[in-house]
Design a protein around this nucleic acid. Structure first.
Lengths: 237, 237
DNA sequence: CAGTGGTCTAGACCACACG
DNA sequence: GTGTGGTCTAGACCACTGA
């Protein structure tokens, strides 16, 4: 018995997953662990890496399923556009769920980011984006209420604050987006149907008007396997 | 006793870490687990999130230490420049270790990316970047041997392929960088002194000449807590 | 050498999905 | 209810660090 079952486990699982038709269920965890001669904890640790890559999906109460042909959202980030617009450009079906619109007061962080006094009235728009039946992104926009008042929003508002501001004719010029990687916090993990601690791609961005004012502070979490974000980087001389 | 020790654990650990001076060691894991009334496995899971944020550092055989004041590399990605150049611009000390230069033959992936036939001679340059005594990035460049022959490299070559090509006068124009988030693969985890499965930010990029030829395929892994990468996104009309 | 974090096991109980 | 994945425990052994 080798000292490091993990690497061997990974290759064995890779074969098993590759050899299982898309949509099919894998054997249950206790059974797989027994078959492969490892404990369930070790098996689950190895499974996690496959879930991050979007190859399998684990659903509590139901089972672990092989995912085939992950629909990928592929986009250059130099261009400022909403996920909705990206998806339309790529002929990809996406849908919005859990749309929540709330009022809140600026804490120190939002006040700094938006350039407004503490306790200013703010509007918060939160939503979950899905492709097929899979939630793939968790997005939150926070704006001063004088920029976006919930009452202004149309009946059919589906959650893209950027598209709403553009259609309204606001003189938006650019956004500054920061990119990082993070563990899924508990609430986001639940919303995206992944496990606490799974790997997510994280964006934080500020949206600027032509006059330099920040009108929107937003942040989002993305399932890595479902997005191919890229950037063109240029030499400056 | 609550059903979910995890959230409580996280807040208790946050207090403990915040209250410990930078550089100090925390109690050992078995002891902490006992003090906090959880098993060691649960404790370690919670600790992981703090390590991802760069707040603590765990070292096998030695202990878990509180990190204070993480030096951050903060850079816009629209500009194509090496990590070395970024760091110089920010007056940040960085150093290179484990520099390895090897020859290999193009497999399908590299052949596609570089636009060369299968089995073409390639040069591979690998290095680890550290700030202070902490390794923070794992970088690999792969180029056709007719673009970069190991013999051409000067004695004092410190690993930045981009800077070398620029100084040589190659007509580089831009790079296309893809960004994702991933679990640390075993070899990278070891190099960056993190645990297998920890969260890393991942880049893959191709470097283009003015004539459109791809001269360099590179990829890198970055510790999220130590980098603030951002992008300016513009409206196109 | 003793003590640390890293890995793995075996088993328990819980929350959830589905018939 | 039954079976699934999600969480947690208790304990073992290993690899590594540093006195």
């Amino acid at each position: 018995m080798p000292h490091f079952p993990f690497q061997r486990l990974q290759s064995e699982l890779a074969v098993l997953i590759a050899g299982t038709p898309a949509g099919k269920r894998l054997p249950s965890e206790p059974e797989l662990a027994k078959q492969l001669g490892v404990s369930r904890a070790t098996l689950r640790e190895a499974m996690r890496t496959f879930e991050t890559r979007g190859l399998i999906r684990r659903r509590q109460g139901s089972g672990t399923f092989v995912v085939g042909q992950v629909p990928v959202i592929n986009s250059g980030l130099e261009i400022l556009e909403s996920l909705e617009t990206m998806a339309k450009r790529m002929n990809l079906e996406i849908s919005v769920s859990n749309l929540r619109i709330e009022r809140l007061y600026a804490d120190q962080e939002f006040a700094d980011s938006l350039g407004v006094p503490l306790a200013t009235n703010l509007t918060r728009v939160q939503r979950i984006m899905s492709t097929g039946k899979r939630p793939v992104a968790f997005l939150v926009d926070i704006l001063p209420e004088d920029v976006l008042n919930p009452k202004q929003l149309p009946e059919n508002f589906r959650g893209s604050v950027l598209d709403f501001l553009l259609e309204r004719g606001d003189l938006l010029t650019m956004a500054r987006a920061a990119i990082s990687a993070t563990d899924a916090p508990a609430d986001v993990a639940k919303a995206l149907e992944v496990q606490r601690g799974d790997v997510l791609l994280q964006f934080t961005s500020q949206l600027f008007l032509a006059n330099g004012r920040v009108v929107d502070h937003s942040f989002g979490y993305f399932l890595p396997g479902y997005f191919h974000f890229h950037i063109l980087r240029r030499i400056v001389s």
